[in-house]
């Protein structure tokens, strides 16, 4: 199916964000389609995390607006966005280190199935939800059974990342927004996390911000590349061959090499 005929889940219209004199995101238009796995790539400082934070409500844009399934969510609180079905992760592993692994999962699971009113929080116990089949199954599928009762602060980085993604998947969002979920992981752990994410393909819309293309090679269905706060290329992996992308992302200056070879040719001729 052509992307244009698919349902747009998240739409950014002319979104900008400035920090002091730095224009972090500059008039960006973007569309995320239902059930696709999309990526935002770019070098350090390209504006991808700022743009991601604007999409998820962490920052308020200076200009432009964000639509979620046609509804303007620009000024909605993160809680309201979660209620609509958006869930995000953070670049640095973000967990509740003073709780056990299973209680982290319980908090994510509970929010997906019950309202977060104080009354509901008070009348429900963690003890009851720790036995929930879905939580137990998630522990097993993410290979976290062994450490279920352990405090998160005693986990390794790979286990924490797996647990964080398990939380997001347990929360059953319609859109999963992941900010560098593979950062700091060993190669074997990256494979494990991608295997888990592959199971979600087709079930959820996934948007991944990633710094290194090698991490998500063959996983993304569509990607955008950002540079200096703007989208400089969009499409499949072939867009990485775009000269501007090669220059900004890989620091390969085709025009310089062309002129060098031209002058070399000219030298040979002369």
């Amino acid at each position: 199916m052509s992307p244009d005929k698919r349902t747009v889940v998240i739409k950014a219209e002319g979104v900008s964000k400035r920090f002091g004199t730095v224009q972090a995101v500059d008039q960006v238009d973007y569309q995320l389609y239902e059930n696709e796995v999309a990526g935002i790539l770019g070098s350090n400082g390209a504006g991808k995390t700022t743009f991601f934070n604007l999409l998820t409500g962490y920052y308020l844009p200076d200009e432009g607006r964000i639509l979620y399934q046609g509804q303007d969510v620009t000024r909605m609180t993160p809680q309201q966005r979660v209620s609509l079905g958006m869930m995000r992760s953070f670049q640095l592993t973000s967990t509740f280190d003073n709780l056990s692994v299973i209680d982290n999962l319980v908090l994510a699971f509970f929010r997906a199935h019950k309202s977060a009113s104080l009354w509901q929080l008070l009348i429900n116990t963690c003890r009851k939800h720790r036995k929930d089949e879905k939580i137990l199954a998630t522990l097993a599928s993410f290979d976290l059974e062994r450490v279920a009762d352990r405090l998160v602060k005693h986990l390794g980085l790979g286990e924490k990342r797996r647990m964080e993604i398990a939380m997001e998947i347990l929360a059953e969002p319609k859109v999963l927004l992941l900010d560098e979920p593979l950062a700091g992981l060993a190669e074997s752990e990256i494979k494990g996390v991608l295997d888990i994410l592959r199971q979600q393909v087709g079930k959820q819309t996934i948007l991944i911000v990633e710094h290194k293309i090698s991490h998500v090679q063959d996983f993304l269905q569509r990607l955008i590349v950002m540079h200096e706060g703007r989208i400089i290329a969009e499409g499949g992996y072939e867009c990485l061959q775009n000269p501007e992308v090669r220059k900004s992302y890989w620091q390969i200056d085709d025009s310089a090499s062309e002129s060098a070879s031209a002058s070399a040719d000219a030298g040979e001729v002369s």
Binding site: T56, D97, L99, L107, A116, L121, L122
Partner: peptide, 29 residues
Amino acid sequence: DDSIYGACCLATKINENKLQFLGYDNFSI
């Protein structure tokens, strides 16, 4: 201590951003 609310209290103590983006209201907790 054993309620979901108790877990939310511990969660807001160390990571209010995460709790907020899980859909809980730090202020009311």
